[in-house]
């Protein structure tokens, strides 16, 4: 263990190493690290912000969806109501139409019946007259039948 010039040499070497490190090594590395730190912090903040925004958007979407559902339900119930109304009203018209058709058919039938009855009556009259003529031709007993013929004539 002898102290000699190595001591001074070592001091000079050490001083030079420190100087170079201080001048050229330390600043760029520490700067880059700080910059990266800032970048990462910014990135994390942005991610946080994005997450928050996504949550908001999700909420909004949920609300919109709910509204849409509600609207759809309303529309469906309205449509059902309207359909019921339409069915009801068409039932009504159908019934009325049926009744009208029935009524007109009935009146037509009645007319027909009346006409037939009129015809019949006319024909019965004619037959009665013809029958009477025949009876009258065979035994004209004016005296005996005069009363009857007169009654008939009065009736017709």
């Amino acid at each position: 263990m002898n102290i000699n010039l190595t001591l001074l040499g070592q001091m000079i070497t050490f001083a030079l190493l420190v100087w170079v490190t201080m001048k050229f090594v330390w600043p760029p590395i520490i700067e880059a690290m700080q910059e990266r730190q800032k970048k990462i912090a910014d990135g994390l903040a942005a991610a946080e912000r994005g997450k928050h925004e996504q949550e908001l958007a999700e909420d909004r979407a949920k609300k919109v969806l709910q509204e849409a559902k509600q609207q759809a339900n309303e529309i469906i119930s309205q449509a059902q109501k309207r359909a019921n109304e339409i069915v009801e009203s068409s039932k009504d018209t159908a019934r009325q139409e049926g009744e009208r058709i029935k009524a007109s058919a009935q009146s037509e039938i009645e007319q027909e019946v009346n006409r037939a009855r009129e015809d019949l009556r006319k024909q019965v009259g004619l037959i009665a007259v013809a029958g009477a003529e025949r009876i009258l031709k065979r035994e004209v007993d004016a005296g005996a039948h005069d009363q009857a013929i007169q009654d008939l004539a009065a009736q017709i």
């Binding site: 070497t13 030079l16 190493l17 170079v20 490190t21 050229f24 090594v25 330390w26 760029p28 590395i29 880059a32 910059e35 990266r36 970048k39």
Partner: peptide, 18 residues
């Protein structure tokens, strides 16, 4: 000392923020 400076100086020159 030169080894130390070589390694660290090279890294410092190529340092990126990525």
């Amino acid at each position: 000392g030169a080894v130390f400076l070589f390694i660290f100086y090279r890294a410092a020159k190529r340092v990126t923020t990525g």
